[in-house]
């Protein structure tokens, strides 16, 4: 049976999700920040974390975006093969982003051409990743991504011989290079495997996962835990002013890869790790 879905339904959902993501963080991230504000031992660090907690409250209560960089709208969609749409999917997504950023008083941060750099004034186009899956549902994740942290992200094309140590060093290197520029405390999304572009998409997807839950693969969960501890010992701290809280979470996603390669992407995000998921 084919299920008919109206594009306007998708647009409306994306509009609401853009606004929701920018005003309120998910519980896992919120809880981590509140806990860190309580346990942090650095003097300036504790003050900054207290400000981040207060900032989240103001954002939620007064509908002011958590961060002025309300991001480029990254949209992941899993579309059931039995779904038929009554129009252009790309247009529907961009219509949702346009309305969300306009009606939600969100910043328009997209330029039409990367070199000519004229603002599109409506935050479109979105960055859309679509996959076809069995069934007749549509799963949408909207993850507005700020570029202070995006600029500090890295892809490492490692050799198989570099192994687990190489992966860990890559993650450590990316976080150290990001340092104060990426608005620590950071959340770190890592993609291992696939090819050049696949590992980067995996890293972004990793950021949309609950940071309080570990990978289902035991060897990956172990690396996530080990890196969380190691990164918090770098002493970068909130705002880069030293402290125990450099990273709130490390999420790793993997995919099979080629016999000759070990691609690793590290997508850095600040504490404003925004993502909202809905199923239509």
């Amino acid at each position: 049976m084919i299920r008919e879905v109206s594009c306007s339904l998708i647009s409306k959902a994306i509009e609401e999700m853009c606004i929701e993501a920018n005003l309120s963080l998910t519980d896992d991230v919120r809880e981590k920040i509140v806990l860190a504000a309580d346990t942090e031992t650095g003097v300036i660090a504790k003050k900054i974390l207290g400000q981040l907690v207060e900032n989240m409250e103001i954002a939620k209560n007064e509908a002011i975006p958590i961060c002025q960089d309300t991001g480029m709208a990254v949209v992941f969609m899993e579309i059931g093969q039995d779904v038929h749409l009554d129009g252009s999917l790309t247009d529907a997504v961009n219509e949702g982003v346009r309305n969300g950023y306009e009606h939600g008083y969100l910043r328009k941060s997209v330029v039409e051409d990367p070199l000519i750099r004229v603002n599109t004034k409506d935050n479109t186009p979105a960055i859309l990743h679509v996959s076809l899956v069995p069934g007749d549902k549509i799963k949408i994740t909207v993850a507005p991504k700020g570029f202070g942290s995006e600029n500090m992200s890295r892809v490492y094309m490692l050799k198989p011989a570099d192994g687990e140590e190489g992966v860990k060093n890559a993650i450590l290197d990316a976080v150290k290079q990001a340092g104060p520029n990426a608005c620590p405390p950071m959340t770190v999304g890592v993609g291992i495997g696939g090819d050049f572009e696949m590992c980067a998409i995996l890293a972004k997807k990793a950021l949309t996962r609950d940071i309080s839950k570990r990978s289902e693969k035991p060897h990956i969960a172990r690396i996530e835990e080990e890196m969380l501890e190691k990164l918090n010992k770098t002493g970068i701290g909130p705002g880069g002013f030293g402290g125990d809280t450099t990273v709130l979470g490390v999420n790793i996603e993997t995919y099979p890869t080629h016999i000759a390669g070990l691609p690793v992407a590290v997508n850095i995000c600040c504490h404003v790790n925004r993502h909202v998921t809905r199923v239509l």
Partner: peptide
């Protein structure tokens, strides 16, 4: 000077 990155709602006040 640095202001706290990611605290835009608070700083707007």
């Amino acid at each position: 000077f640095a202001a706290v990155g990611g605290a835009g709602a608070l700083l707007s006040k």
